[in-house]
């Protein structure tokens, strides 16, 4: 299969004027063997459509041009890959030290949803022949993308299509179905967030990927090209929220909570074993603080106290009585 894709890229790079679909299917290796001069060639055409998507995803700029005098005629549409848009500009070079950093950046994605992308990016880097200096030794950084929604949402983002999903907002009785125009995916405080325009209200919203339930469905129609720096502004916004929310907590000295919470970014240690902590989301912080059990007592804000108490009560409720075996459970 890569033979056919390789031949397609070579043929389209070599042509100035472009090739029509019929010319491609009848002459390019991998297609021509299966081309029927008098037939419909629908299977082959579908194959070509998929191949086009595949090579575009790799960053190969596949261009279509109308034949003069026949605008909009699909059959006379010509395909080509313009060299200047295909080739890495000659002035882009990387020093060995820079290459070492890029290797480490790619390594951070080793098992995430972007692992293939980062591996391909490294192949392209090595293509320009830079020698890699010693790797930055002694690190194994990892960016996790454990949320199942990350893959489909990053797809939606790069294809610029809408995404639909059920979203369970804390406090809501049930998940609600949303259709959004994705703008950015950002990780803040170890959590992935989606910045998107909620189509129902035509306004920007920030969604936590961990609150998406069920499958993410992608739309078909392309959205207008985006130009904003949504990722940077989404992170700034989350930072502002983080800055504005402060929780006051009392900790037992010498415990895990005391040691770890006092060393958080922005944590301030107060007299009486109290710690002031910034946070972005009261429910996420409540989850975490409930986990510390008796090592912490939340003093404020009241909503956070309530949220932690609710979680502790839920833990007792869930485990207070013997387990009733669910129907159909055979052992």
């Amino acid at each position: 299969m890569e033979e056919r894709l390789f031949s397609l890229v070579l043929a389209l790079l070599a042509t100035e004027a472009g090739l029509t679909k019929a010319e491609i299917l009848s002459t390019v290796q991998g297609y021509r063997q299966r081309y029927e001069p008098s037939g419909e060639n629908t299977t082959l055409e579908r194959q070509f459509e998929r191949d086009k998507d595949d090579i575009r995803e790799l960053g190969v700029p596949l261009e279509t041009i109308d034949t003069p005098g026949e605008p909009g005629n699909n059959q006379s549409l010509r395909y080509r890959i313009p060299r200047t848009a295909y080739e890495l500009p000659a002035d882009i070079t990387f020093s060995p030290a820079e290459t070492a950093l890029l290797n480490l950046a790619a390594m951070a994605w080793q098992e995430g949803s972007l692992s293939r992308e980062s591996r391909r990016a490294l192949l392209k880097l090595r293509s320009i022949g830079v020698e890699t200096s010693d790797p930055v030794l002694g690190y194994a950084p990892r960016i996790r993308t454990r949320d199942a929604a990350f893959g489909p949402l990053s797809d939606a983002l790069s294809k610029r299509v809408t995404a639909s999903f059920s979203y369970l907002k804390p406090g809501d009785p049930a998940a609600r179905y949303r259709t959004v125009e994705p703008l950015a995916l950002v990780q803040h405080q170890g959590r992935w967030h989606l910045k998107a325009i909620d189509q129902a209200v035509k306004q920007q919203r920030t969604f936590l990927l961990s609150r998406i339930t069920g499958a993410v469905k992608l739309g078909r129609l392309p959205l207008p090209a985006d130009t904003g720096s949504y990722a940077a502004s989404a992170l700034e916004e989350l930072d502002r929220i983080w800055e504005g929310n402060v929780a006051e907590i009392q900790v037992r000295p010498g415990t895990d909570a005391a040691v770890r919470l006092s060393r958080r970014r922005g944590a301030s240690v107060e007299p009486g074993d109290r710690i002031l902590l910034h946070f972005t989301d009261a429910n996420l912080l409540a989850d975490e603080l409930a986990g510390f059990g008796p090592e912490v007592r939340v003093i404020g804000p009241g909503t956070l106290v309530d949220a932690v108490v609710q979680r502790l009560e839920a833990a007792i409720r869930r485990h207070g009585d013997p387990v009733s075996a669910p129907a159909g459970e055979a052992r």
Binding site: E57, L58, G59, V60, P61, A85, Y86, E87, L88, A90, L101, L102, L104, A105, A106, M107, A108, W109, L114, E117, S118, R120, A121, K124, S127, I128, I143, S154, S158, Q187
Partner: peptide, 17 residues
């Protein structure tokens, strides 16, 4: 010459950095 990065390839390395 070497090919350019795709939008996602560049994004992965930028976010990694």
């Amino acid at each position: 010459d070497s090919p350019r990065f795709s939008a996602r390839e560049a994004a992965a390395l930028i976010a990694g950095l």
